[in-house]
Design a protein around this nucleic acid. Structure first.
Lengths: 345, 345
DNA sequence: CTGAAAGCGCTTACAG
DNA sequence: CTGAAAGCGCTTACAG
């Protein structure tokens, strides 16, 4: 006997108790005998009772929803990435009794600085904003009178609570790995003036070089895109390195194709590593050694933070960093330096 | 002066009117002078008023939310597709004053037949379910006492309201195009026992052949995956066709790689077409001629249907079909038959 | 252990 | 054109 308009009172009437008692029982609160509680739950199920969240929301002033904002202006590839992040966020939120509402921010709304309607309709208790968005929009987000948190976003100076992946350290570890494998002639591929994450990855790369006193060759910093982010024709350097560290998998794959065309074998003649472990990592032939962000960790931290902020709105968490891990595949070949004295490095 | 707890009454008090009048003004209802209405809206904005949807929801019995369910068990590629569908759904829903809540159905929940929590918490007025899901889950969805609609799903016998893309007609058109370009030796690539959409595409292919009295060669129906859907090693037929119609872009790309390895040039020696226009269509080299679903149309039909069902729960729409369109790229070469008499076909 | 009362913020009749 | 009253379904004090 399913009815869509079963309320607590209906259950109460059926059992000859009050709706207060039903509420207590269904919420596992004190003040109801175990016996009655069990009976109430049984009848609730039988009658197909479903909680009316709207009523609870009005009473408590909480919607038990978090808005997740993803800017549209990402390629399909990143879409897949962000969708997986969303999935992790949703499942983390669920463990707090929360649901998540995905809002895809259209380029137009971003441009016009239109905040999500769910904000104006008080449909959420807070926002998690993913990815890089325009400063003007960030500012508007900051003006919202609800808790908010930025994910995978970094902007100098902006005093925002954010959780970012550790681009710097990831690239550092990946480069260090190459060096441990004997590579000393290393190029970085990416427009280092383009985005903050490309920059950070470059700096991690550079740090690994510095640590091993390997000089940074200007010729081996290779542009992969123009300043608008559109990929450009790659130019191989006059003198070739033994390994390329690419700022992302897509470019790594692109480079591999280029290398093959020019007659280089990967990894025999030339090692290549990517970053992100997205679809291009396995589209590339051979499959890329790359870095993957620990997405579950990312989501866990984010949800924990936003929950804290919902409960105590004055909480600030600052900038939190989540580490990645290297995924070893088939694009790195060890190099031996038999001519070198042992332990020279 | 932003305050997060501004209510209609606050606005009313400020202006010395009643909250009823404020409600009417903000909802553009009759019964308020234009002058007062304007003034109320002004003050509302000034005070940073945001509608409390929960209160409206309780009153009206509508949440103005639609749940969109996407099964997790899809590859990254399909994820991108479904995310775009979601995006279109969301923007269509917005035009009805609705928000959308994305629920990604985990494989575990699908297996255990756990309905989304948003259902049990009455957070949505209806559901749109995307993609192919297990019969047991479908059945549970059918039991839900809210309107629901299936998208891109088809199951024989299930009396569900669904909107599907026209696999049959799309493949028919694509194949007809090849035939118009002079191809008469055509192979279909796909396990025709695997999924309903692969089957339908095959049948569309077959219909085009029938129409032109081109015999169907059993050797030219080539398996691309096992019955679990995992791609297998492709085997080229002993005698080669002039064109391959592949059931999806991913396999088309896979085939092109294979052909290249075996020394065939695409499209010079062999034309290839895909289906879906997903990322593989442009990852493939050369870029694929393929079929794209009219996603906006799909979303528009879906939202229109679910809105109708929300307003009149007894509405049924049955099975609605949305057409696709061919995207012309670089994998088809016209064939001339100079030996043929003019107009023979 | 159980329940009557009040209130969350809105909207819909209805009365003036 | 404007407003007082009632009610949507719940939960939180409070009283018994």
């Amino acid at each position: 006997m399913k009815n869509d308009h079963v309320t607590m009172r209906d259950i109460a009437d059926r059992l000859g108790v009050s709706s207060v008692t039903v509420s207590k029982a269904l919420n596992d609160k004190d003040g109801v005998s175990d016996e009655l509680k069990a009976r109430i739950k049984e009848v609730a199920k039988e009658m197909g009772y479903r909680l009316n969240t709207a009523a609870r929301a009005m009473r408590e002033g909480l919607t038990y929803n978090i808005g997740v904002v993803i800017p549209e202006q990402f390629t399909n590839v990143n879409h897949a990435f962000y969708l997986r992040v969303y999935q992790h966020l949703a499942s983390q939120l669920e463990s707090y009794g929360y649901s998540s509402i995905l809002h895809i921010l259209s380029m137009q709304d971003e441009e016009m600085v239109n905040l999500p309607r769910i904000y104006y309709e008080k449909k959420v208790d807070g926002f998690i904003v993913l990815g890089q968005i325009k400063p003007s929009y960030i500012e508007a987000v900051q003006q919202m009178t609800v808790p908010k948190l930025f994910l995978d976003f970094y902007q100098e100076g902006a005093a925002v609570d954010s959780i970012v992946t550790d681009n710097f350290y990831g690239a550092y570890e990946l480069t260090s790995y190459l060096i441990r494998e004997g590579h000393e002639e290393l190029a970085y591929m990416g427009n280092i003036y383009s985005t903050s994450s490309i920059q950070d990855r470059f700096l991690g790369f550079y740090k690994a070089l510095l640590e091993h006193r390997i000089p940074l060759q200007p010729d081996w910093i290779i542009r992969d895109r123009d300043d608008h982010g559109t990929l450009i024709e790659l130019e191989l350097p006059a003198s070739m390195p033994t390994a390329f560290v690419c700022n992302c998998d897509q470019v790594a794959r692109y480079l591999i194709e280029k290398l093959k065309k020019e007659g280089y074998r990967v990894p025999e003649d030339c090692s290549v590593v990517g970053y992100d472990n997205d679809i291009f990592a396995t589209v590339a032939e051979p499959h890329l050694t790359t870095v993957e962000v620990d997405m579950e960790m990312l989501a866990k931290s984010a949800v924990k933070a936003i929950m804290k902020k919902v409960n105590r709105p004055d909480t600030t968490i600052g900038r939190t960093v989540v580490q990645g891990k290297i995924v070893y595949r088939d694009t790195v070949k060890p190099i031996n330096h038999p001519e070198k004295k042992n332990g020279e490095r």
